[in-house]
Simulated assay, not measured.
Amino acid sequence: MTNTLQFFKCLAHDTRLKSLLLMRHHGELCVCDLTSALQLSQPKVSRHLAELKRCELVKDERRGKWVYYRLNPSLPDWALEIIDQALSSDPDYLEMAQERLKTGETCC
């Protein structure tokens, strides 16, 4: 995994932080789930997911024509604790995205 500074730099963008927190909460999400939840274009979401992958924070898995993302299972405990703290400390931060995931149409 990347060093501590790189970890925080990777999470310094709203799209990357929300994507990572949503993956932590849901286990894994398809790119189309994230585009719906975040109300962003597929290329924009994919670009941010590529950055999270480059930072070794997420892993991806292709299933047919869809790509699913989840947290890297080898993240150190300190990184998971920070992610969990962020997830639980401000439930309003993800409220709209969570609602869109519940009610949104999924592509896969």
Rank of each mutant, 00 (worst) to 15 (best):
Thr2His: 02
Asn3Ala: 06
Asn3Lys: 13
Lys9Tyr: 08
Lys9Leu: 11
Cys10Leu: 10
Ala12Phe: 08
Asp14Thr: 14
Thr15Phe: 07
Thr15Gln: 06
Arg16Phe: 02
Leu17Met: 12
Leu17Gln: 10
Ser19Lys: 05
Leu21Ser: 06
Leu22Thr: 11
Met23Cys: 07
Arg24Asp: 00
His25Leu: 11
His25Met: 12
His26Ser: 01
Glu28Ile: 04
Glu28Pro: 00
Val31Glu: 03
Cys32Lys: 15
Leu34Lys: 06
Thr35Lys: 08
Ala37Leu: 01
Leu38Ile: 04
Gln39Leu: 12
Gln42Val: 14
Arg47Val: 08
Arg47Thr: 11
Leu49Met: 03
Leu52Asp: 00
Lys53Trp: 01
Arg54Glu: 09
Cys55Asn: 04
Gly64Ala: 01
Gly64Cys: 01
Tyr68Ser: 03
Leu71Trp: 00
Leu71Asn: 00
Pro73Trp: 05
Ser74Asp: 13
Leu75Gly: 01
Pro76Gly: 12
Asp77Lys: 13
Ile83Trp: 04
Ile83Leu: 08
Asp84Val: 09
Asp84Trp: 06
Gln85Val: 09
Ala86Glu: 14
Leu87Asn: 05
Leu87Ser: 11
Ser88Ile: 12
Ser89Arg: 15
Asp90Lys: 07
Pro91Tyr: 06
Met96Leu: 14
Met96Phe: 08
Ala97Asp: 10
Gly104Cys: 05
Gly104Met: 08
Glu105Trp: 14
Thr106Gln: 09
Cys107Pro: 00
